[in-house]
Amino acid sequence: MKAIIQNHLKQIEQAEDVKILLAVESGSRAWGFPSPDSDYDVRFIYVRTNEFYLKLEKTSDVIEYMLDEELDINGWDLKKALCLLKKSNPTLFEWIASPIVYYEAPVFERIRNIAAHCFLSRPALYHYLNMARNNNREFLRRDRVRLKKYFYVLRPILACKWILARQTPPPMLFAELVEAELGREVRSIVDGLLERKAVTSELGEQEPIAALNGYIEKELSAIEEAVGHAPKQDAVPWEQLNRLFLSFLRDYE
């Protein structure tokens, strides 16, 4: 599948007249808990020619290709990505940290270097907290629960706990978050769910797990209390990001 994805990326470069800087897997495969029928969520960052950025009219800053039910590919323009880096966008940090890399240009190391100084705890905490709360409210308070939805609540909860403890971006792999942050009282339950999810379809359901639901409600309350006390941090100056953007444009003149 990797070769197929890389071939599609080359076709996108030619069709869109762009240079891809980074292409990775996001979602359940990159988080480490795919189902047998999980699709591929490929995300990439690209740069265009200088002439494109000098156009007066509004131009698109995304490329989207939904090739079929199995393969979803889309990307962000470098300018968009750097503006989101300024805001410490958690999704962008996840792309940068993905353990499944389909392509990375050597020059992308420049972005990795500056990203290390762009992470802001508060935006990330609110992002993951809202994700956990919304998924919990929408999917776990039912008579039948889709198995994968437990992980879509647990992962952002554990990401919040990681950030509160370390003030750094959380790792992508769920296993790393579990090892560092999951309470022992539900560890065996989650391990069992992981084993089941690995052999269950995306639509697999079961009755709610009272002990796990209780753990989730307790942790959400604790995180909501702690978020307000997270330290305020200054964003990286525009000057640094502007210099970085111009360096890429010089590379692709």
Rank of each mutant, 00 (worst) to 15 (best):
R110W: 01
F248Y: 13
E219N: 09
Y46C: 03
D191G: 06
F33M: 02
N74T: 00
A115S: 15
I45E: 03
N135R: 00
K10A: 11
L244Y: 08
V24H: 00
L212F: 04
R144Y: 10
R144Q: 14
A105N: 14
L147Q: 09
I163D: 01
P237N: 07
V62Y: 06
D37M: 06
D68H: 08
R142P: 00
A97Q: 14
K232W: 10
E217W: 08
D39T: 13
K55T: 11
N242C: 04
L246E: 14
R112S: 03
I20V: 10
L140E: 08
I5T: 10
D37N: 11
L249Q: 15
P169I: 01
A23E: 07
L85G: 01
K19G: 01
S221H: 12
E70D: 15
I100F: 09
I216A: 09
G214H: 11
I223G: 04
G214D: 12
I209F: 10
F139M: 04
S26H: 07
L9D: 08
D72Y: 08
P99F: 03
A210Q: 14
R141M: 12
Q11D: 15
K10E: 08
Y46W: 10
K55W: 02
F151C: 02
E94K: 04
P231A: 11
P106M: 11
R144W: 05
C118D: 05
V186T: 02
K232T: 13
V186E: 00
E25I: 00
V107C: 13
E239K: 12
P123G: 08
A23R: 03
G192T: 10
T91L: 08
Y128I: 05
W95F: 07
L244N: 08
V236F: 05
R142E: 14
E179W: 02
D68G: 06
M1W: 01
P171K: 09
E225Q: 15
V101Y: 05
Y215S: 09
P237E: 13
L22K: 01
C160M: 02
R137F: 04
V107R: 10
D143W: 05
E224V: 07
L246N: 10
C118A: 15
L147T: 01
R250N: 11
D41N: 11
Y128L: 03
R133W: 06
V107Y: 12
A180Q: 11
